[in-house]
Design a protein around this nucleic acid. Structure first.
Length: 522
RNA sequence: UCCUGGCUAGCUCAAUCGGCGGAGCGAGCGGCUGUUAACCGCUAGGUUAGAGGUUCAAGUCCUCUGCCAGGAGCCA
């Protein structure tokens, strides 16, 4: 009740200028009366909800009456966002945005205007406007910032996001006429050029849509985990040591303490946090100085890492599939227009729901070895080369994900190809309780996780065997001395998930300002 | 680090066997009342990444350098 009333109240058209001042003064005056009139109800057992919503309803009614009175002669148009334009059909509105494209038809000009919330077509007819205004519109450079006043109407022909609505221009003010040499033409660009102009490229519809999906993915992650009782406790970015070897770390001076390193995982700290909070996650940027040059790698990327106490490998997979399903369904529901503008085939996402198929590494290896032996093309055969004990390459992941329409869990990898902290498989010390989640359509590994070693002595032995500096892991080992429990966690690469959901080739488009081995600008 | 490919107008790309460097977009001017990255006409726009070499002649062939991309390894 309260929220509905609030929404209605906020959507109430508010005038501007003198009329606004008059209306606001009158409203404030009346609000005082309403407040006093309803104050006696504040002590209700039900608390605030009841009397607050009644009060807001009363204010709505009063302001609506005043608005209707002022509408005759005084009423001014209000600023609305493109995303809310469907609520204003038949009304005059003000749009504040940028000229995305201009199509000049002689006595008729179409402006495609974007305002951050969407894209909408605005139409200028020569006969409806002052000659100088019309002339101004026909010469507006791409990306000029404008304030447009006009009437909203429904029109199936109108392009845009959401599309189907357009604004008949009655007035247009130029905030700034953009320079005519705007470099991002509405066409395809080379990778280098596009990335050099990333600060402008993000204005293009495709990039806008991808980054909107990213935002939804990130909020869906938080919604899901928070709803499952996880605590978001972020872990340090400046760290003293590596979790997975020291060759892929960015190093920086740290006062008199020598070197610090940019974190490549928050996992070790998550493991400390679960003993205080049970279920936690960290969500932030992660840094890897790997010299990887592929469509799946960035040197700075965002990783979500949940960690759960009293959780084994099966429990971990249940969390992963539940969360991924929630993310996919949230994006399908809330980013339909974005996915459509990207040309994404959403039928490939619609049936992504838990449970996901599970395959052991042994079975996957058997499948890949058979595939390798059957392959006759020598080039393909070389790429598919596989034997038990190897980690999967990208071509292997693609072949495995072809088996299902849903993401695929592969569990029980050889310990030799995985990190030191993973719990050995009972009775099979050569493999560990690890699991990777491979996204369909060849998008590959989006999550990697494991049950962690919970035994102090076994972990210490492994650290020694790996030649890792024992003193750096002193605190980490201590976690196994005071109430150690089976626990598990995983990491999810946000950009890989976004790339998969958007159906884009390269994850550099799934982050606002990508950092790669060759690029720190802009 | 390795393998492969590329670098021609502001952008995206052509240029046949080594034989007069072209188009589209963008920009400017003009035309058009329903365009979807409009269309039509005209105009401007070039040290072919840099250096050297072969040749009567090099965007094209050779050598070196630089830059970029895709992939491998590694990983999320």
């Amino acid at each position: 009740m309260l929220s509905e009333a609030s929404v209605r109240f906020s959507q109430r058209p508010f005038p501007s200028g003198d009329a606004a001042l008059l209306l606001r003064m009158a409203t404030i005056f009346l609000m005082g009366h309403v407040a006093r009139a309803t104050k006696g109800n504040a002590s209700r057992p039900n608390g605030m909800k009841g009397w607050q919503s009644e009060r807001i309803d009363a204010i709505c009614v009063i302001s609506n009456i005043i608005g209707k009175i002022l509408h005759k002669g005084f009423f001014m148009t209000e600023h609305v966002s493109v995303s809310k334009i469907s609520n204003h059909v038949g009304q005059d509105v003000i749009l504040k945005g940028w000229v995305y494209n201009r199509t000049d038809k002689g006595k008729l000009v179409f402006l495609l205007v974007r305002d951050g919330s969407g894209f909408i077509q605005c139409v200028a007819f020569k006969g409806d406007l002052q000659p100088e205004t019309f002339d101004l519109i026909t010469h507006l450079p791409q990306e000029s910032s404008v304030v447009i006043t006009g009437a909203v109407r429904e029109d199936k022909r109108a392009p845009g996001i959401p599309g189907g609505f357009e604004v008949g221009i009655k007035d247009l003010q130029v905030v700034q006429a953009a320079d005519i040499d705007y470099p991002m033409a509405l066409k395809d660009h080379g990778v280098d050029f596009a990335l050099d102009h990333r600060h402008l490229w993000i204005r293009m519809q495709s990039q806008w849509a991808i980054l909107r999906v990213r935002v939804r993915v990130m909020s869906a992650v938080r919604e899901y985990l928070d709803g499952q009782g996880f605590f978001n406790l972020d872990t340090p970015i400046l760290t003293p040591a590596a979790a997975e070897g020291t060759t892929t770390l960015f190093e920086t001076e740290y006062f008199d303490e020598g070197s610090a390193f940019l974190a490549q995982t928050g996992q070790l700290y998550n493991e400390a946090n679960i003993f205080a909070f049970g279920k936690v996650y960290c969500f932030g940027p992660t840094f890897r100085a790997e010299k990887s040059k592929t469509r799946r790698h960035l040197t700075e990327f965002w990783m979500l890492e949940p960690e759960i106490a009293f959780c084994d490998l099966d429990g971990l997979m249940e969390v992963e599939e539940g969360m991924i399903s929630y993310i996919v369904q949230s994006v399908l529901r809330d980013c339909a227009a974005e996915l459509k503008s990207l040309g994404r085939d959403v039928t490939k996402l619609e049936n992504i729901s838990a449970p996901f198929p599970r395959m052991s590494y042994d079975d996957a290896a058997k499948f890949l070895i058979e595939l390798y032996e059957k392959e006759t093309d020598p080039d393909k055969k070389e790429l598919l080369k596989f034997e038990w004990g190897m980690d999967f390459g990208a071509p292997h992941e693609v072949e495995l994900t072809k088996l299902n329409e849903k993401p695929l869990f592969v569990y029980g990898y050889p310990s030799a190809v995985k990190a030191f902290y993973m719990e050995p498989w009972p009775g099979r010390p050569e493999i560990c309780k690890s699991v990777d989640l491979l996204a369909p359509e060849g998008y590959g590994e989006v999550c990697g996780g494991s049950e962690r070693m919970s035994d102090h002595d076994a972990l210490l032995a492994r650290i020694k065997k790996e030649g890792l500096p024992e003193e750096a892991f002193k605190w980490y080992l201590e976690l196994r001395k005071y109430g150690s429990v089976p626990h598990s966690g995983f990491g999810m690469g946000v950009e890989r998930v976004v790339a998969w959901l958007c159906g884009i080739e390269h994850i550099r488009e799934a982050i606002p300002f990508p950092r790669t081995i060759k690029r720190v600008y802009p």
